[in-house]
């Protein structure tokens, strides 16, 4: 365990680019960095920063539209499904409680009817809670995005 931990160190620790060419020339080759310009070309950090940002933007343009669309679709489906299930679950629970209390107490239709209406009330409460929680989450995310920009 300790052996592998020690031998792994060079691969896992950060090595400054300047050392990259002299001490760890084998390192770059096994990382497969083909189209990365040589570190010697440009040692200025601001330029590197600029290039990194440009590359990141390019990458984002390629990645974003499709994956974001699908993620939005999936989360929209999840929200719709969540609300629908919440309603159905409350109705089933209300109806079920009423039905079995009726069986137990022998008051055939009455408790079932009462608890069915209570189930409707519970369904409304559930949906309102989900909506509130989603709104809170959205507000939280919006403020965080504003801070980031």
């Amino acid at each position: 365990m300790t052996d592998s931990f020690l031998t792994q160190q060079p691969g896992n620790t950060y090595v400054a680019p300047a050392f990259n060419s002299c001490c760890l020339s084998h390192f770059g080759s096994h990382q497969g960095a083909k189209n990365m310009p040589e570190p010697e070309d440009n040692s200025s950090l601001t330029d590197l920063d600029k290039r990194l940002r440009a590359a990141r933007e390019r990458q984002e343009k390629v990645n974003k539209p499709a994956s974001r669309n699908q993620a939005e679709m999936a989360s929209g489906m999840a929200v719709g499904f969540r609300i629908a299930v919440e309603i159905v679950a409350a109705l089933i629970m209300g109806f079920g409680i009423g039905y079995y209390l009726d069986l137990w107490l022998g008051t055939k239709p009455w408790l079932m009817i009462i608890f069915f209406f209570l189930g409707i009330g519970a369904a409304f409460i559930n949906v309102i809670r989900v909506a509130k929680q989603l709104e809170n989450k959205k507000r939280f995310r919006d403020t965080r995005e504003d801070d980031a920009e």
């Binding site: 999840a78 499904f81 969540r82 299930v85 919440e86 159905v88 679950a89 409350a90 089933i92 629970m93 209300g94 409680i97 608890f115 209570l118 189930g119 009330g121 519970a122 409460i125 559930n126």
Partner: peptide, 22 residues
């Protein structure tokens, strides 16, 4: 109180049905 009770008891149903149905 009955409405909140029904709402509380419906939690395991909604929790399980959501995952299973999806």
């Amino acid at each position: 109180i009955p409405i909140e009770l029904v709402s509380y008891l419906s939690r395991p149903i909604s929790l399980s049905v959501r995952l299973f149905a999806n």
